[in-house]
């Protein structure tokens, strides 16, 4: 470094600083855009399935695939299961997680008819604590517009949404109550819950 000509050294430092500034400053804006793009892309795919004219069973499978691609299924399944997730063995949890994913695809997929001829407009995104909230408005036939908020995080290593809030109603909280009640019905037996989930939704 000492032998480096002055000009070069200054240029080098300038480049470093510029790179750092680039890395530090627009990161937030970029992530807000990324979060927004993620929601938009998953919505586009959902509508493509709704308009595809497939059979309902094929649609539920396609919704499940979209959910697995854009949502952080692991954290959603874990959070829905609550404290029992910490005691579960890896294989047992993986089986539950797989069943949970199919259950979500069917449960929410079943409602696809309400979305025929509808549209959801992404309206904005903002940072909330360590994650991003993407806001959108759903225009469904015969209903007043509904506010739908998506919570997106990259804590899993990739940008994924982990919660959807429709007019204040929170999917994660609702699934916590539902999975909690299903687990209680099985006396706390996770394998039993997994078997029930494979049929539910």
């Amino acid at each position: 470094m000492i032998l480096m000509p002055n000009e070069t050294r200054r240029g080098f430092l300038g480049l470093m600083a510029g790179g750092l500034a680039l890395a530090a400053l627009p990161a937030r804006a970029l992530s807000t855009d990324q979060a927004r793009a993620l929601v938009q892309k998953s919505l586009d795919e959902v509508y493509a399935v709704i308009n595809s004219g497939q059979s309902p069973a094929q649609m539920y499978k396609a919704f499940e695939t979209i959910f697995a691609r854009y949502a952080d299924v692991d954290i959603i399944a874990r959070s829905a299961l609550g404290p029992a997730a910490r005691q579960a063995g890896a294989a047992e949890f993986a089986a539950y997680r797989q069943a949970f994913q199919g259950y979500i695809g069917r449960k929410y997929g079943k409602r696809f008819r309400e979305f025929i001829g509808s549209k959801i407009e992404v309206t904005g995104a903002r940072q909330v604590k360590s994650f991003y909230a993407v806001t959108s408005v759903a225009y469904l036939n015969g209903r007043s517009p509904m506010e739908v908020e998506w919570h997106v995080s990259d804590k899993s290593g990739q940008s994924r949404y982990f919660n959807i809030i429709i007019e204040g109603v929170n999917m994660l909280a609702s699934e916590r109550a539902e999975i909690g009640a299903m687990l209680a019905r099985r006396g706390g037996d996770l394998a039993g819950l997994t078997a029930d989930l494979q049929k539910a939704g």
């Binding site: 995080s153 982990f162 919660n163 204040g168 109603v169 994660l172």
Partner: peptide, 21 residues
């Protein structure tokens, strides 16, 4: 749960965000 969440949303009385991470 669903009724309380929606009502609190209408009244601007929602609780904190859930951060599962």
């Amino acid at each position: 749960l669903i009724w309380l969440q929606h009502r609190r949303y209408e009244l601007g009385e929602e609780g904190d965000y859930i951060d599962p991470y």
